[in-house]
Amino acid sequence: MLLIRPIQGSDFPALMTMARESGAGFTSLPLCENKLTQKIVHSEDSFNADVQAPGDQGYLFVLEDTLSGEILGVSGIEASVGLANPLYHFHKSTMVHQCKELDIFNPVEVLTLGNDYTGVSEICTLFLREPFRVGLNGRFLSKVRFMFMAEHPKRFSKLVIAEMRGAAGEDGQPPFWSWLRKSFLNMEFSKADYLIGVGNKGFIADLMPRYPIYVDLLPEAARDTIGQVHENTVPALKLLENEGFMHRGYVDLFDAGPTVEAQLKQIKSVRQSHRARVVINHDPLQCKGTSQLAVSNCDSKEFRATVSDECRLDTETHSLMMSPAMADLLKVTNGDSVRYLNLDKGAK
């Protein structure tokens, strides 16, 4: 069976493997042993904490094949970004140059550096290893975060964002970065990417432009990729757009990938996930359902989630019939509450 649970210390080798496989530009998985170890410890502390309001918590979930014990993917949530380290974005907006005397009205697009998303929650670190990008794995790994947020809303901000990886050229380098490096930063993309990943952002305030940048003055290749995603990120963006996330002009500093946002209570999987009471049944035929359901327990410290059609939902009694094996996996017993979400909804 597939199991999503909080990351733990023994998952470090798997996390290092995913950091290598994710490649440059995936700043939330830096190829740095110390930083990844810190992320695991921080996540363990966050899941164990008694939280009444969002703060400097970070939650990492891993997707495990319980038969092989192999870790297939990882996803995460930052409860409140920009508190310990500034979170910078460019915001693309329109500035008007007007001269009534000459009857000239000229709207121009500009990029402005800012910290407008300070304090919001961020879903991040979604990475599914390539051999396992099949079926509902990616959808399950993404949506389970919204189930956790729906169950524990006090831990998160009312606004949720996601930073999407920006478009890259044939050489693997973002065209936007090529212009930025030449104009402002004398360093390789891999170095800047690494510094961001380990939380060293001081150089941004020191070296980045302090005034609006006129988009029309950028090289065409850089201009055309503003707000565009990497080809490998297209499925993730579509999942979030289906959840109700929208792009409001904010882009990444280095690759110009879009940052999308949504109100927590308006996210589709938050609205469509519901609680039910556990009923354990030893007859597999009676437990057989008609849809693939993601089901999680309602705990934070011992959070567990799985996906299966081997459970039957009774909407009239608000109960979910499941096998003893599934109940054991979720660490629940008869009468306990679980949260469920139909993964077939919105499927292609």
Score class of each variant (00 low, 15 high):
residue 308 S to Q: 07
residue 256 A to E: 10
residue 37 T to M: 04
residue 197 G to L: 04
residue 277 R to Y: 12
residue 227 G to C: 05
residue 332 V to G: 05
residue 252 D to T: 12
residue 261 E to M: 10
residue 273 S to C: 12
residue 236 A to D: 05
residue 314 D to W: 07
residue 341 L to T: 07
residue 84 A to H: 11
residue 40 I to K: 01
residue 30 P to Q: 14
residue 210 R to A: 15
residue 4 I to T: 13
residue 319 S to E: 08
residue 232 N to R: 13
residue 122 E to W: 06
residue 159 L to M: 06
residue 114 G to N: 14
residue 45 D to T: 05
residue 1 M to E: 03
residue 83 L to R: 09
residue 258 P to Y: 09
residue 134 V to T: 13
residue 193 D to K: 10
residue 53 A to M: 03
residue 69 G to L: 01
residue 228 Q to F: 09
residue 59 Y to A: 03
residue 122 E to N: 07
residue 207 L to G: 10
residue 135 G to M: 03
residue 61 F to L: 01
residue 68 S to L: 01
residue 312 R to F: 10
residue 127 F to A: 00
residue 18 M to R: 00
residue 140 F to R: 03
residue 13 P to A: 12
residue 79 A to F: 01
residue 130 E to F: 03
residue 215 V to E: 05
residue 145 R to E: 09
residue 28 S to M: 04
residue 256 A to L: 04
residue 211 Y to E: 09
residue 62 V to K: 00
residue 199 G to D: 07
residue 187 M to E: 15
residue 245 F to S: 14
residue 147 M to E: 05
residue 311 C to Y: 08
residue 185 L to R: 11
residue 39 K to H: 13
residue 117 Y to N: 13
residue 264 L to N: 09
residue 63 L to I: 00
residue 175 P to D: 08
residue 67 L to S: 07
residue 195 L to S: 13
residue 169 G to Q: 06
residue 201 K to C: 11
residue 44 E to F: 05
residue 329 L to E: 05
residue 79 A to G: 03
residue 57 Q to F: 07
residue 5 R to G: 00
residue 203 F to C: 04
residue 63 L to T: 00
residue 311 C to K: 09
residue 35 K to T: 15
residue 159 L to A: 11
residue 203 F to M: 08
residue 36 L to K: 02
residue 320 L to E: 05
residue 284 P to N: 11
residue 299 D to E: 06
residue 253 L to D: 13
residue 69 G to T: 00
residue 77 I to P: 01
residue 221 A to I: 01
residue 84 A to K: 13
residue 198 V to R: 04
residue 158 K to E: 15
residue 178 S to I: 08
residue 335 G to K: 10
residue 190 S to K: 13
residue 220 E to I: 04
residue 226 I to S: 12
residue 229 V to Q: 09
